[in-house]
């Protein structure tokens, strides 16, 4: 999957020019507005449906075929979901993963990016090449699993923390950012006898708050969404990460449903509502930071880092 983190702000100049030359609404504009509205609704409706189901009773769910705006709101499904306990375990594990993992990500990435960005030291090209190679080749999951086994990290959260220590793409973005800070500041501090670590923490980092914030956010989102490594490295029930907890609630039961077709729920508990409550709860933090994520790349701060 290739991703480019770029300035998405579309041609403002172009837009301004267009508006000044032809201000009237044409047929094309209306067609566009309608098409894009339909597509946007195709994205919104599934979410709205999930949200609605999470707040209704089984009776209303079975009665209504198109459920988007519930008539009566109940919190029973959320209660059932928390009583089930799996989401709590997931939340706890993922919270620990974020609390340990993100600072380690940021420490490793920042110090290495700053070091690599220094203007003149022997073997600079070699070290950058050393990083870039890992963007093109990787050992894959099997050697990683065997390595974790040899390090005795299987069934420990450290395996998941350490397996994703540095994202080479984020590292390169940060390195480019640091390379473009004025070096005069660092040089004068050096003359005053400050060491590189002091310069990094006292001078460079205060100048780099926007990029630090963005990177923290990106790592945090990656950690939040992390499940594959956890599935492979951790087989202990009390260390299930949130995404896998959600998977066990929603998707595994779906798989068994496919096998017996009579799947209208008749049990006391309204499982569909409980499942959708779990989806909402797992999505909530991403929804909260999304405006921030959005603003950061709209600002055009992370430009031109190709992630392949």
């Amino acid at each position: 999957m290739a991703e480019v983190i770029m300035n998405p702000e579309p041609a403002r100049r172009t837009a301004r020019r267009k508006r000044s030359i032809q201000g009237r609404i044409e047929l094309l504009d209306i067609v566009l507005i309608v098409i894009l509205a339909v597509l946007a609704l195709l994205i919104i409706i599934p979410f709205l449906n999930v949200l609605a189901i999470s707040f209704v009773t089984q009776q209303e769910y079975l009665k209504t075929s198109i459920l988007l705006f519930p008539k009566e709101i109940t919190l029973e499904n959320y209660k059932a979901m928390f009583e089930d306990g799996r989401i709590w375990t997931g939340y706890r594990t993922t919270a620990i993963l974020l609390a340990i993992g993100v600072p380690i990500n940021m420490f490793l990435t920042t110090s290495m990016a700053y070091g690599l960005s220094r203007p003149d030291y022997p073997f600079k090209r070699f070290f950058i090449f050393f990083v870039v190679v890992t963007m093109m080749f990787n050992g894959g999951i099997i050697p990683m699993y065997l390595l974790m086994k040899q390090l005795h990290l299987i069934n420990s959260l450290w395996s998941v923390v350490l397996a994703y220590g540095i994202n080479a793409f984020y590292l390169i973005i940060m390195m480019n950012y640091f390379s473009n800070l004025p070096i005069a500041l660092a040089e004068s501090a050096k003359l005053d006898g400050a060491g590189e670590w002091t310069i990094l923490f006292r001078i460079i980092l205060p100048l780099s708050m926007p990029i630090m914030a963005t990177m923290t956010l990106f790592y945090a989102v990656d950690r939040w969404n992390e499940w594959f490594n956890a599935m492979i490295f951790i087989r202990k029930g009390n260390l299930v990460v949130l995404q896998l907890a959600l998977r066990s609630i929603v998707i595994d039961s779906q798989i068994s449903q496919q096998l017996n077709i009579s799947n209208i729920q008749t049990d006391k508990q309204f499982t569909e509502g409980m499942k959708m409550a779990a989806v909402i709860v797992s999505m909530l933090p991403i929804m909260c930071v999304f405006p921030l994520l959005q603003r950061h790349f709209v600002k055009g701060m992370l430009i031109g880092a190709i992630k392949a």
Partner: peptide
């Protein structure tokens, strides 16, 4: 010294698995 922690990470968790191929 600044680069070192990162290099160690890359060696253990990127290059050793690569060798693992």
């Amino acid at each position: 010294m600044l680069i070192l922690p990162g290099v160690i990470w890359f060696v253990i968790f990127a290059y050793i698995p690569m060798y693992g191929l």
